[in-house]
């Protein structure tokens, strides 16, 4: 039995905002199936009551002082933008016609 199906990979591609073609879906489905099968080995470890670690360091809520200080100018912030209009990022339409 495969660990991950081609349909699941197509769904993951949609969630990941990756417009993959049919050939890529076939290729990735086979590879992801192999990878998921291999990483599923973590289930062999008896870890029921072990606390999870999201991080190697025991740090929480680290903030620097809330002081006004210089930051990027609009020109700097927009310097890499694919499209700009009136000192703002110009983006394709966000709302669908049917929405």
């Amino acid at each position: 039995m495969s660990a991950i199906t081609r349909d699941e990979v197509a769904h993951l591609a949609r969630l990941s905002r990756l417009a993959l073609d049919e050939g890529e879906l076939d290729h990735f489905a086979a590879q992801l199936d192999q990878i998921v099968g291999a990483v599923a080995r973590v289930a062999e470890v008896a870890a029921g009551d072990i606390p999870p670690s999201s991080h190697a360091l025991p740090l929480t809520n680290v903030f620097r002082p809330d002081e006004v200080r210089p930051c990027l100018t609009p020109e700097q912030a927009l310097s890499g933008a694919p499209a700009v209009e009136d000192d703002r990022f110009r983006v394709p339409r966000i709302l669908g016609e049917e929405a």
Binding site: A40, A43, V45, A47, I50, P52, S53
Partner: peptide, 14 residues
């Protein structure tokens, strides 16, 4: 089963 279990394994490795 995947991310959560991997984080527990991470604790055991530490």
């Amino acid at each position: 089963a995947y991310y959560g279990q991997a984080q527990k394994v991470r604790t055991l490795i530490s």
